[in-house]
Design a binder for these strands. Structure first.
Lengths: 247, 247
DNA sequence: TTCATGGTTCGATGCTAGCCGAACCATCGC
DNA sequence: GCGATGGTTCGGCTAGCATCGAACCATGAA
């Protein structure tokens, strides 16, 4: 009666709070040690070690040994994508995080999703690239000729990206915006460009903090209008039963 | 330390085999009764009732009462999308379903994902639409002017679709092909068109069975090359440890 | 009204899996 | 070689939850 791969084992893996927190901590693409992940999850070292063994067995994370440390990272961008999508479900599901503090606002504005830019600015970026005809197509979001010129000038080694097995362009569903932002090798390259140019820096959470000048430069480079003012949190339109058919 | 919505509760919901099976049974977009879902999950009626109550509380499914039956359906296409994405992870994770029987082959070839066409033919469809310039853009996969003409001739009431809050075009990640197929209101309309024209019918599983004539008509209408012969199952390139960095 | 069927609620049971402390192994610096 | 630090393994405890039978409600048919 069942069809396709069995989702239950994987979902159960993501369903434990400790493991979920560890994975969330890895969502920025960095590799973390067991101790760091234990702290992120709020469990002791042995417990974390056990969880990580399971995640590794399921190939959701990959480990690398360096000296007496073991560094864990997500095994691929697709894991990050599923996590983002689950956050989307979790949000509309009513499991709204009440803590809409300044940190949350920062995350909604611009954050690192695995290795590319997400959040409001991330979505705006993809919009802008399309509007200018730099990126087109729907499946793998192919680069146009103009886009190739543009990004070459931006300093991206397209030839190298295209040799890899990872798609150059790929849409990734954004939990806060509920729209696509740009992932893939190009998405990663753009984020690298942002950091290299010191337009912004990654803080200890997943938020990406732009400098004022950097934000202006970023918007200018990609032809984006500045970020709209965020509406007052707590004044959500759907208070008790948000009967939104979201997609 | 946590950021964004908490995924663990939702994921835990999907992590129980009984619930996962029920959701999988609902993946074709149909509404099923509690008894049917209980059978699909292989549990007794009280157990199923309890599970469904939880899923409903989490707004993953929605219920509708008709007479003395209660019909459950997925609460939206986004739920189906997350399920498809999880299947993708489950597959590469090593939880490969060994039962690569004829039914599985049929599912890979063409199946119903919530309310639109998925599988090899679904991916080919999106490819074809793009190649012919009927669909373009990357975010919401907008229809081109030619596309509007085309689908109007195909019998789709675009004005009606665009009035709804659901996006007309939307990519949905395919677990068997690991590429996007076309979802959204237009995806649903195309599937309706296929069924109305008797090009194929939905069997009791999620497989979509084309008639020989219907398949030819489908390929012809959307300018697709016929489906490539499926390679021998069991002759997978990655036997023990598929170390594929998939995305 | 009365019976039959679909669904829910309740209570009891049993299993699973997360958690920690303690002991153990590996690596680094001295 | 010796301590110190990072990780893993083991054993035992506990809590949560899936499961089912039985009793109970609701709807439709006779």
């Amino acid at each position: 009666m069942k069809e396709g791969p069995a989702i239950a084992p994987v979902a159960a893996l993501l369903g434990d709070p400790a493991r979920a927190n560890m994975l969330a901590a890895l969502m920025d693409g960095r590799a973390l040690t067991v101790s760091e992940l234990a702290q992120a999850a709020g469990v002791t070292l042995p417990t974390a070690s056990g969880h990580l063994a399971k995640l590794e067995a399921a190939r959701l994370v990959a480990a690398e040994k360096q000296g007496r440390h073991r560094y864990f990272r997500l095994s691929g961008p697709d894991v990050a994508q599923v996590l983002e999508a689950l956050m989307g479900l979790a949000q509309r599901t009513g499991a709204v995080r009440v803590r809409t503090g300044p940190k949350d606002a920062a995350l909604r504005s611009a954050r690192v999703c695995y290795d590319h830019l997400a959040g409001e600015r991330g979505v705006a970026l993809l919009d802008g690239l399309e509007r200018q005809g730099l990126v087109a197509g729907g499946d793998d979001l192919a680069l146009t000729d103009q886009g190739r010129d543009f990004f070459t000038r931006f300093g991206v080694d397209l030839a190298r990206l295209e040799k890899g097995r990872r798609p150059v362009c790929r849409g990734c569903l954004d939990w806060s915006e509920r729209r696509l932002h740009l992932g893939g090798a190009l998405g990663a390259a753009i984020l690298s460009g942002i950091v290299e140019r010191r337009w912004g820096r990654r803080d200890e959470s997943r938020a990406l903090v732009f400098t004022p000048d950097g934000l202006e430069a970023f918007n200018g480079t990609f032809g984006l209008s500045p970020e709209p003012p965020t509406e007052q949190p707590g004044a959500e339109p759907a208070p008790a039963a948000p009967r939104i058919r979201v997609l």
